[in-house]
Design a protein around this nucleic acid. Sequence first.
DNA 1: CTGAAAGCGCTAACAC
DNA 2: GTGTTAGCGCTTTCAG
Lengths: 348, 348
Amino acid sequence: MHLKSGRATIKEVASAAGVSTQTVSRVINDRPDVSPETRKRVQEIIDNLGYQPNALARSLIRQRSYTFGVVTAGLKYIGPSRTLSGITSAVEEAGYSLLLKELPQFNANNVAPTFQTFLSRRVDGIIWAVPEVGDNRTWVNQLTLDLDIPIVYLAMKSQENICVVSINNYLGGQLAMSHLFEQGYRHIGHISGPLDWWEARERMAAWRDMLTEANIEFKDEHWVEGNWSSASGLQAIEKLLKDYPEMDAVFVSNDQMALSVLQYACRNNLRIPDDLGVVGFDDIPESAFFWPPLSTVQQDLFSVGEAAVEEIIKIIGPGKHDRDSVRPKSIMLAPTLVVRKSSLKNKG
Amino acid sequence: MHLKSGRATIKEVASAAGVSTQTVSRVINDRPDVSPETRKRVQEIIDNLGYQPNALARSLIRQRSYTFGVVTAGLKYIGPSRTLSGITSAVEEAGYSLLLKELPQFNANNVAPTFQTFLSRRVDGIIWAVPEVGDNRTWVNQLTLDLDIPIVYLAMKSQENICVVSINNYLGGQLAMSHLFEQGYRHIGHISGPLDWWEARERMAAWRDMLTEANIEFKDEHWVEGNWSSASGLQAIEKLLKDYPEMDAVFVSNDQMALSVLQYACRNNLRIPDDLGVVGFDDIPESAFFWPPLSTVQQDLFSVGEAAVEEIIKIIGPGKHDRDSVRPKSIMLAPTLVVRKSSLKNKG
DNA sequence: CTGAAAGCGCTAACAC
DNA sequence: GTGTTAGCGCTTTCAG
């Protein structure tokens, strides 16, 4: 079967079937008030012609486009694309279409045109799937304050009166730290992500708070700021081992940096997990195949994307969007800890 | 500055400015035939009201939506999302919008609805960014044979009369093999990707052809089919080492599987690159931080995405699309070899 | 059950 | 330079 050009109009169908355009409209919208015979005849013409209603015309009159706009950034990283994947899946499921914009950087000081485009295309809702970095969220907040369509924000600190869907990064850090404590590690260092990222700050805060709770002294020499890259991880572990020689474990803010720790250990006869326990964050697919396999905090970003779409659909509801009818609520999804060999001091 | 609701109409602007809608239309479309004073007055009203032309209405009458549809699959993998990133970038640059669909799998036996959606939204062109796997390309070909909008295909075997943009995977394999030969390796095994993937077949064909050209005997025990995952890479290398004990190097069809080779070597006192040379494919960011750093074939998938958009815009041209005006041409981008330690037998 | 008329927001073609 | 008319393809009244 070939696709027909898709350019037939409702008028052509109507005249071919010998009915009015309204009747055709009723058929394609599954309205009850059409006689079975008429419906059948019209449907046949539709199938023959390969007629597809023009969604543009439909959106124009219905004042609803059945389209969402999504803003993302850094698709080349695993996180944003996972999230996007969850969004596409849920959007498809709901019968909506998706308009995609990717920011060239994570900052948001020039996104007005992006929103304008979405508005001019009359999207029914917007998903802001850009991680909170620096002050980008301030910009967006200002810009979207009195938008009359719903907007859901991803991967940022939750906030009154707006709908935010995030992973609980703080909890992730706690999971990593409790596990290391349980394994008997006490001198736990930290390699953080870039601290203009909210996610990095949360993970680090958990590390610090857990140390404090355990009455373990914490010093500035016990942590180093990385930039998510393996290269920065390498520099970080070298510095840590020098400045914090008693360190017996390290909580690393993502798996790519943790990889560098493992590799450094491998080259320098540092035994993992015996001399140094390591826990990462993200659970990238390779981490199970690092040597030793990496313990890490798994975050289900696909679900974050799905949840965002579900929320926005809930807000829109079956009818038109009523700004005040739905209390915007924030959602925090819990990450889980994946324990592998890199942190298992007590084997058996 | 806040975004206005964006719901003002051209009519409201017109009456506020005391002109006809036509004049407003001329102003927003930068037509010359408006007096400077009128233009200025209208522009002010537009700015005040935060008026944004309704792109839906505009598309309806212009018969052109300035929107492309892109079909992708497997966004959670690095390749497809890189490609998508190149697409979003070039689309943005060109002032177009992008409608995104992600297939739940790589097969294409149920994509008619996807195309229908695009057609009903009157996209100006379609980018099929799904790698050629199994017979998915046959399905798509059938479906799109007499579409009256241009379509560009990515990551598949080039073909007469359709526009395909791909990486030259065969060349990539050749680069890897020549390099290994130059380093003095002779008994070169291969871990392929799943052979229903065109890319995997190309890489493997290069491996076989290069062996043949070098007059090196090639047997079925010299290669194993993997499925791109690190897990499959591990099984593959174990089997290869058993069945092909003379093997002194291995060309692996992606970096994730190559990682397993490195890890296996690390655990089994197999020295890389001395006992075994390894070259991967993809150049994922981590590969420079594997141990030893992995030699690999780098493919610029971002550029593939960009090139696809450029082609489609060329086909559409400034006016309406004329199916016969442009000869569809295929583009093959050359990958490059990144040499690192895992294949450097002759150090210095 | 079915059709005629009106109009969503915009622009092309023509008047003046 | 500017306004008027018509119409893109559809759906929503409201008659019959």
